[in-house]
């Protein structure tokens, strides 16, 4: 349900007035600058919202830290030590500048620094997300190309029905079914747990295979449907396809070299917009498979009312989504010469 920021971002007319094709005046650099300038206030606003949200969390973090049987004075001392006696505005700026200094505070439960925790947890989530994207695209692109080869054919219709069904399967349900079949019934793969890469590539991949599939299959269904629809549209309506056909390019090559090349822009946008959804999806998938990633860290933090931890996790998740969209915007410019040279 993430909106299409790329799709309806206003293209100001002055953006196309190129001053030259290199250096600071080049349209690409100015596009980069404008997008970065748009991302910064957004990130700041997100940080304010995260902070406000966590302020609303019931319970007293100082009391939490000091323990239930601590005296009023002890709680007050903890409150001062944690800086909670300051006004919310002061604390917000303290928190914000802390981010720039690389000081993200400490967990009020374990006392561990949040930077260290992120260092431990983020790689796990990163591995899950990267592999999920790779797997979903590896499924979606060939399947969509084969389906678009003969729209309405038997393969195409099968793909449409299967993908429609997979789209309706929530990733946590899929996760359960995968565990049921591969871990409990067939005993081929571990049901839960994460094996770090240092203990060998194969055990690591075995431990992440089921969670990656649970994340990737619904995504693959979504991408397949999108790409197939776009390809069919291109093949039916675009003049350059007719030109390619008239030149005598074979049907597969027209699909690959011409239609897919154009459709890949739309796919890229969708992938970028999905990063937020996928990152959110890891919260529940990590929980099911007991993966010690950021999603688990956020959930554990939420359960134990560990404000510093939840704050940072939510902020990182949102920042990743924003930066991913920024990256997609820029990839657009890199891939599409019309945008790169400002002659759009």
């Amino acid at each position: 349900m993430t909106g299409a920021s790329v799709l309806d971002a206003p293209r100001r007319p002055d953006a196309d007035r190129g001053f030259g094709r290199s250096g600071a005046g080049s349209p690409f650099v100015r596009l980069l600058a404008r997008r970065l300038l748009m991302a910064i206030p957004l990130l700041l606003a997100v940080s304010v919202l995260v902070f406000l949200l966590l302020e609303l969390m019931p319970g007293d973090p100082a009391r939490n830290q000091a323990g239930m049987d601590a005296s009023e004075e002890q709680v007050e001392a903890v409150r001062r030590r944690m800086g909670l006696d300051k006004s919310p505005v002061e604390r917000y700026f303290g928190w914000l500048f802390g981010i720039f200094r690389g000081d993200l505070g400490r967990s009020s439960v374990s006392g561990q620094s949040v930077v260290d925790m992120l260092g431990d947890r983020a790689p796990v989530t990163l591995e899950l997300v990267t592999l999920a994207f790779a797997v979903s695209l590896l499924i979606a692109i060939p399947v969509a190309l084969m389906a678009a080869r003969r729209p309405g054919g038997i393969f195409d219709r099968t793909v449409m029905v299967v993908s429609m069904t997979m789209l309706a399967v929530p990733n946590y349900v899929l996760a359960m079914l995968l565990v049921l079949v591969f871990a409990i019934m067939l005993r081929m793969l571990p049901a839960i747990g994460f094996v770090p890469l240092e203990e060998g590539l194969l055990p690591n991949l075995r431990s992440v295979l089921l969670p990656v599939l649970a994340l990737a299959v619904p995504l693959a269904a979504f991408y397949t449907r999108f790409l197939r629809g776009d390809l069919v549209e291109q093949m039916n309506a675009a003049d350059y396809i007719d030109t390619a056909r008239a030149k005598g390019v074979g049907p597969w090559l027209v699909l690959w070299l011409h239609a897919f090349r154009n459709s890949s822009f739309g796919l890229l946008t969708i992938v970028g917009l999905n990063i937020g959804t996928l990152v959110g999806g890891t919260v529940i998938i990590e929980q099911i498979f007991a993966m010690p990633g950021m999603g688990m860290m956020m959930l554990e933090g939420a359960m134990s009312r560990d404000v510093a931890v939840v704050q940072m996790c939510v902020f990182v998740f949102a920042a990743v989504a924003i930066l991913a969209n920024l990256f997609v915007d820029l990839m657009y410019a890199v891939l599409d010469p019309r945008i790169r040279y400002g002659s759009h």
Binding site: L42, A45, M57, V283, V314, A321
Partner: peptide, 22 residues
């Protein structure tokens, strides 16, 4: 621009944070 801020959050993360706060 205000809506952008909400949309920037991964939906499940935002709902979890709100549900947890409430």
């Amino acid at each position: 621009r205000v809506l952008d801020v909400f949309i920037a959050f991964p939906s499940l993360v935002l709902t979890i944070a709100i549900a947890q706060a409430l």
